[in-house]
Write a protein that binds this DNA or RNA. Structure first.
Length: 660
DNA sequence: CAGTGAGCGAGCTTCCGCTTGACTT
């Protein structure tokens, strides 16, 4: 009997079917060991022996290890078929250390797609465990442990209270920094008002453009300029030129974890953790006609690759469904340099599990996600969509107006997605025609748009393109930031809290060489060199630790000032974050010489009913809902006068209701 | 309920990445 050990239980049945009677396939369910929380600073590292980690079975994996040992006992040959990447190599290494193989043959095999050919080919080409690849994984593990534990405890000392859990790390802190940086860009962005000129016709609106460059809409910063042009116009708009063109919309690549999460948020407003959970259900499979059917391939993937076998069936499927003409080429993502390609793209296991067939067996949300994946996979092999465009230029006393229409010429991949619709109106006037607007031209007041806050989706996209985090951790990293109260989600946007801002500022002042968008990339380079044997694990860890330790010792000296970036209006010193048992506030860092404290902006909740109620004390203000910021009753809502601090009238919510 | 102030320190936890359940938001 042969035993094959993979990572995910969802794969075992399929692989067993490919290999036949002599093979049993079981799963490790991921890592089975982790570094212990013992020794110096709980790091679990032996500092007298090249930082060697002390490993222990992960508590909830003990039953898995018992099960694996039982299966090993029954087998004569063992194949370690964990994922073909750095972490997979490490899982195999630990299995080899932990399981009671006795004298049995243990070999490592790998396949990066679950197809019959790939699995059978892998069995024919076994190899030994690659200790260099394992060393690179262990290096990552050690460095993450040191960074994570040391920074977390220092940060807790600096900003923590007994209530909150504080943490920091190579990945989460960089993600947080991205969010804070974006917030600062937004705050420093100067909004400017500008004006555009528009004319309304029966079926369309045309905009005033630069007469030398009709592709450019004119924008005026001064209203007077716009008004003088308006005064210059009459009611005759002569069709001066009609420009024909095309626009191409490129078909998408198949889904990776990152792009699936982005689509599900954009289309269905589903959070990343929710989407991933549903994808997992589809991967594990559902009962269809009394048969258990796995619907999608593995959902944690960074690859847009489809297996040759599947691509063949995809082409046939598309021919039948949309015709020979629909076939384009295999679209791939071109920007993912850090991809490890251990799995295929996320795709339907079989195109025969059509949307119509599976819909009755799926929950609404499951169906939404399955449909996204099914249609994206179809689209990825289809032609790009082409639109025919027609731009009309109008002349009015030398001023040029422009409007562009488009209609589909070739629907391409859009057939698999939402389809394409013919426009309700398509311009059919000729050059020289004179058109009259339905009302006089007018100006539009607009403001320049600054940068936008991240959504979960755009944050994941940014993390992926900087190589921060992995498909298995994108969603959990964002959850960590939420749980730590570093960020909040408001209207789909990721908004940093004051605590998050402080944490990030603190780390940025002291550890900007590690908590940095480029650090992971440079670390990956070294890990790659360890994996091919040109660098030694001990040397990399030692170099890292020596510089880290020096920085850390400098940073670990109170007081832990955290500067806000603002200047004290009283003495000109830097403003800093402070905290006490009531919470966080901003004060001059020159304390106690300067005792300036920044007033908290009290957000006034507008309550239409009370807003009208005049203050009984000063008679000029009105009552608004406020929240106690300090004192024992912090958080309590009460009514106070809008003239505070001139008028200090307050009244309890309960009393207010009673009086009414 | 409206005007705040760090430094001590027991015993917890904390990292990132793999994977599922067993638990509450």
């Amino acid at each position: 009997m042969n035993l094959v050990i993979v990572e995910s239980p969802g794969k075992t049945k399929t692989i067993e079917n490919f290999l036949g009677e002599d093979y049993k396939v079981v799963a490790s369910k991921g890592h089975i060991r982790d570094i212990k929380n013992t020794g110096i600073d709980n790091l679990g590292l032996d500092f007298n022996n090249n930082y060697k980690p002390v490993y222990a079975i992960i508590p909830h994996q003990e039953s898995t290890v018992r099960m694996l040992n039982k299966e090993v006992e029954k087998a004569s040959n063992i194949f370690l078929a964990t994922d073909p990447d750095r972490e997979g190599e490490a899982i195999s290494w630990h299995l080899n250390e932990v399981l009671n193989f006795g004298g049995k043959t243990v070999k490592r095999i790998e396949f990066n797609e679950i197809t019959k050919d790939a699995v059978q080919e892998a069995i024919k080409n076994p190899r030994d465990i690659d200790t260099n690849i394992f060393a690179s994984q262990e290096t990552r593990k050690i460095m993450d442990r040191i960074i994570g534990f040391k920074l977390s405890s220092l940060l807790k000392k600096a900003i923590g209270s007994s209530k909150e859990t504080i943490s920091a790390g190579r990945v989460q802190s960089v993600a947080l920094k991205m969010i804070i940086n974006r917030e600062e860009e937004i705050n420093s962005f100067n909004k400017e008002t500008y004006y555009e000129i528009e004319a309304q016709f029966r079926h369309f609106k045309a905009k005033l453009v630069d007469s030398n460059n009709p592709k450019k809409t004119l924008q005026f910063t001064e209203l007077g300029k716009a008004e003088s042009i308006l005064a210059d116009l009459d009611e005759n708009y002569i069709v001066k030129e009609i420009i024909y063109g095309t626009r191409k919309e490129t078909a998408p690549a198949p889904f990776t974890t990152s792009t699936l999460l982005q689509s599900a948020l954009n289309k269905y407003s589903m959070s990343s953790s929710r989407t991933l959970k549903i994808a997992q259900e589809l991967y594990e499979g559902v009962e269809i006609n009394g048969r258990h059917v796995a619907l999608i391939t593995y959902m944690r993937s960074d690859s847009t690759r489809l297996s040759d076998q599947f691509m063949g069936s995809l082409v046939n499927h598309l021919k039948r469904k949309y015709g020979e003409d629909s076939i384009g080429y295999a679209h791939k993502a071109n920007n993912n340099k850090s991809a490890q390609d251990a799995h295929e793209a996320i795709r339907p296991v079989s195109l025969k599990n059509t949307l119509e067939m599976v819909e009755p067996y799926l929950s609404k949300e499951q169906f939404k996600i399955y449909k996204l994946i099914y249609t994206q996979t179809e689209a990825s092999m289809m032609k790009d969509a082409i639109y025919e465009t027609k731009t009309a230029l109008f002349s009015n006393n030398g001023h040029i107006f422009s409007v562009t229409f488009e209609r589909p010429e070739l629907p391409g991949f859009k057939l698999a997605k939402d389809g394409v619709a013919e426009p309700k109106y398509y311009f059919n006037h000729l050059e020289g025609d004179v058109m009259k607007p339905t009302k006089e031209a007018y100006y539009l007041e607009k403001t320049t748009e600054g940068p936008k806050r991240f959504t979960e989706a755009t944050l994941i996209k940014e993390m992926e393109s900087s190589g921060i985090g992995r498909p298995s951790t994108y969603a959990t990293t964002i959850n960590t930031l939420k749980m730590r109260k570093y960020v909040e989600i408001e209207k789909k946007q990721v908004v940093p809290t004051k605590l998050g801002t402080m944490a990030s500022k603190f780390l940025d002042e002291r550890f900007s060489d590690i908590i940095n968008i480029n650090y992971t990339a440079s670390m990956e380079k070294e890990l790659d060199e360890i994996a091919v044997g040109s660098l030694k694990e001990e040397n990399v860890v030692d170099d890292f630790y020596k510089t880290f330790k020096k920085n850390f010792e400098v940073a670990d000296k109170p007081p832990f000032a955290i500067y806000t970036g603002e200047i004290c209006p009283k003495c000109g010193s830097k403003m800093s974050f402070r905290s006490n048992s009531y919470g966080v506030f901003e004060a001059c860092s020159n304390y106690p010489t300067c005792k300036y404290i920044k007033k908290q902006e009290v957000e006034q909740e507008t309550d239409t009913e009370t807003e009208l109620l005049e203050c009984p004390e000063c008679h000029t203000g009105h009552l608004v809902v406020k929240e106690a910021r300090v004192g024992k009753k912090r958080g309590n809502k009460f009514y106070g006068c809008s003239n505070y601090p001139t008028c200090k009238f307050t009244i309890d919510l309960k009393d207010y209701v009673r009086k009414k």
